[in-house]
Amino acid sequence: MDFTLNADQLALATALEGLAAPFKEMPINFRGFALASEALEEQLVQAEFFDVAATAGLGPVAAALTVERLARLPFAAEVALSMLVHPHLPGNAWPRPLALVEDGRPGRFVARARTLLIAHGDKLSVALVAPDEVEPVESIYAYPMGRLTRASETQARAVPLSPGDAAEVRKWLRVATAAEAAGLMQAALDSTVEHLRGRKQFGRPLGSFQALRHRMAECAVLVGGTKLLALKAASTASESDAALAAFHAQESATRITYELHQMFGAMGMTLEHPLHLWTYRLKVLLSDLGGRGGQARAVARH
């Protein structure tokens, strides 16, 4: 057991902070639902961040930490699947961005993806997509959402993954969901802490009321636990650890999205505050891979 980062991982974390710095504030006039940055992705490509998982001395733990850190930014970027799942696709002919389409419903980054993972029940296949096979979908979720325009056609030429490959990819999808959720929850929590410290009612900061302090503390324990479980799953690459991490992420996110909005009151309902950028991404993650029921089945199997 060793919970410390090695020198390479620490250097990566420092480099990541520098890279993330210009993206840490929501643009002042932004009033939309989905906020994404292709510029951030481009910088990650230039700095070779998408190779982290396969780099000696860095590995999947560093990749999961990177996903968690970047998920805390107000800008969404297609990072989680490219960093954690891409290395486990069979063959190497699958360009990024990547996206997942589950049971035909809209998914995050689908409209920009060049490679799609297509899940139907327990079956998983992978396909290259042309731009006219996908289209954006307007939604209140804070990711750019998209869907297939000719689903049966794309599905028909998708390459089915063998049961072994499918299990491997599904496992890393779970790690990706958990790592991303951990970062989203942390950012939403930090933002709410700031609100509770500054906002006064009844003559004192909201954050001094025990009814809120305790709920916030419970949220903090859930967030920290999700991050630890995600990092462990990235490190051990065990199916059971991945399923537990994704389960705990979705379980925690369910509670946290409600709690934090409740504590923010009306301010959190406005689009001028960034809270929704994290909570309405978390709401997308809640249904990943069958939601809690899907993860629980995987936990029971392993």
Binding site: M1, D2, F3, T4, V221, G224, G225, T226, L228, L229, K232, D241, A243, L244, A245, F247, H248, E251, R292, G293, Q295, A296, R297, V299, A300
Partner: peptide, 30 residues
Amino acid sequence: RFGSDVYVQAARARAACEAARLYTYQIIDQ
């Protein structure tokens, strides 16, 4: 009697055990 109706509750408890374990290990590491 370990059916799918029990899976979510079992996973919830098990994830909580593992989270507690990792939190504790983090303290021991420190």
